[in-house]
């Protein structure tokens, strides 16, 4: 077992994982994989195309960012390759999010054979906790596994 806080090869491999075009729309970038803590850290960008008429991020896109980070955590930290699909997700919106970079820390709470439980916290640029989420993710063996 590798207990180093952030393994460079691991991070590069996880960064290269195909996430589809939606990742660019959210300004997604994987910053770190910490296997010892069972967490990943992900950067997003809050930009006007994701905002509501109040000029802050529409809650649904906050959900989108948190969900992406939760799936990143499953992909990076599960004990073997899986196809992962979110079954349900609860998101709480603690503070309005204005433009700029955001940091999200997502952690694998428990992983079974066919289910993973994940949680995430999204921080605004000034470090303020802006949103939290938990999700239940269905795991199926990756194709060719």
């Amino acid at each position: 077992m590798n207990l180093s806080p952030s393994n460079g090869d691991d991070l590069q491999r996880q960064r290269r994982r195909d996430r589809g075009p939606v990742a660019a729309l959210l300004g997604h970038r994987l910053l770190a994989v910490d296997r010892a803590a069972a967490t990943v850290e992900v950067e997003f960008r809050a930009e006007p195309h994701l905002f509501n008429p109040m000029n802050v991020m529409q809650g649904g896109f906050t959900v989108a960012m948190l969900e992406q980070a939760l799936l990143d955590a499953v992909a990076a930290l599960a004990d073997r390759p899986h196809e992962a699909a979110t079954l349900e997700m609860q998101c709480n919106f603690l503070a309005a999010i204005g433009p700029g970079p955001l940091r999200c820390r997502a952690g694998l709470v428990r992983q079974g054979r066919s289910t993973a439980f994940v949680e995430a916290r999204l921080f605004a640029g000034d470090g303020e906790l802006a949103a939290t989420a938990t999700s239940v993710v269905a795991l199926t063996a990756a194709a060719g596994d």
């Binding site: 996430r19 589809g20 939606v22 959210l26 529409q58 997700m89 998101c91």
Partner: peptide, 13 residues
């Protein structure tokens, strides 16, 4: 997403 279906967060949005 990478599976060619709409990202769940966008359905939430």
């Amino acid at each position: 997403n990478q599976l060619g279906v709409i990202h769940g967060g966008f359905l939430a949005a």
